[in-house]
Design a protein around this nucleic acid. Structure first.
Lengths: 146, 146
DNA sequence: TTCTTAAATAGTAAAGATTCCTAACAGGAG
DNA sequence: CTCCTGTTAGGAATCTTTACTATTTAAGAA
């Protein structure tokens, strides 16, 4: 996300026409740090914007990813789009499915294992899975009844 | 994979009945270091074993995972089962979809970021994506025609 | 060996995510 | 204003995975 551009300028700079649908989706996914799925975007917008189809959501998110405006990763078999395009990792709760960003290791240089020296690495993804603080507590007390 | 048990013994030790289907799937996925998908297993076995359904493949792989005989991870939206159950990372070619194991960092202790200290971490997954050596070469020459 | 029972299986249906297809539509340059 | 091309909605299609159910069967007991 860029502080120096409003959304129309940002889209125009990537040769994307300023359609109402695109502006709507952009307003949602580029304006705050969040992890969204195609379905999530559609659900949040469809009431206020009946002229919006799942198809367009998929296309738009894909275009934003191609432009580098969003970062895409897979979580539990679903595509998740992240407006935080800086290098960072994720953690996901295996119980409530919450996803959080982990602060990037700016001090730790992008490290590539020696066995990949003859590859042309494009990206790295790291995901920790476990119980978030809230679910860990719930799980502890649930053990009495389970 | 255990060197000290044959497959029937291994299955029995996990309270799994020795059905032909289960033995067949086990023979394929537990006998060599490989990454398989449910569909891949089914495709490889269905000709020689007509009495095998996708459903059974899914169930069997799921049971093997529950027993700790296989490790499961997601790649490109598909479930992948790995007979290498030791802690290790993966790299995947974005062009030919090949998946390779990266030698585990036995020297590097399981590292958990400070922001997850109040989580109960269950697993960590790290995936590098890029062009494998073969595809990188193909891609270089393809640029002339693309 | 035969019996018994719970586990396992095949087949089908269903659910959910994503892509494909196509005709209609509309942004924006000229 | 007009035209061209990118964009969109809607529906169909594809693919993966899970759910359901009647039937079969492994394996221990008699």
């Amino acid at each position: 996300m860029s502080m120096m551009h409003d959304i129309p300028t940002l889209l125009r700079s990537h040769d994307l026409r300023l359609t109402p649908q695109r502006l709507t989706v952009a307003g949602l996914v580029l304006s705050k740090q969040a992890h969204v799925t195609a379905r999530g975007v559609y659900q949040q917008l469809k009431d206020d914007h009946p002229a919006l189809s799942m198809n367009t959501v998929y296309l738009t998110l894909g275009q934003f990813e191609a432009c580098g405006l969003l970062q895409r990763f897979e979580m539990n078999g679903n595509a998740v789009f992240d407006s935080n395009t800086a290098r960072h990792d994720h953690a996901s709760c295996s119980r409530c499915a919450t996803i959080i960003d982990l602060p990037g290791e700016e001090d730790e240089p992008p490290w590539i294992p020696a066995s990949l020296l003859d590859w042309q690495i494009q990206s790295e993804q790291r995901i920790w899975t476990g119980l978030c603080p809230a679910c860990r507590t719930d799980s502890d007390s649930a053990q009495l009844s389970d």
